[in-house]
Amino acid sequence: MHAPKPLTATRVAATCAALDSASWPAGAIVLRTAPDEAIVLVPTKDIEPGLIADPHAIVEIESSLCGIWLDADDAHDLLERECDWETPSARPAFAQGAVAGLPVKLWFEHDRVLFVVSAVFANDFMERCR
């Protein structure tokens, strides 16, 4: 496997309602990691004030994530070997959990899957998924 590449992303903590109703930049991949948190794969400057209806929202640059796209077959093979839990069948879909014993976020599209891993584990991820 190639080394996962640094992702440009923004982390947002806000009320659940504000995240539900946010109008994210067109085409942005939004990883809803928790009811009150989302990771949006766009530069932080693209998250304009007012986009999230929560004056207390925390919006921060998230520069510590790495990602790698695998085509659907390779992703399936990798997940069969390295993932104990059942991934969603809908597309697109987001899921997160242990893959290769590491915390990984998964973004499923029709023909490909984005594996997102924190840079603190990027080396381990690459070694384990070779």
Partner: peptide
């Protein structure tokens, strides 16, 4: 509590 919480340990 009416708060937002963000753990930035690995982000920063």
């Amino acid at each position: 509590a009416d708060v937002r919480i963000m753990n930035q340990t690995t982000s920063l």
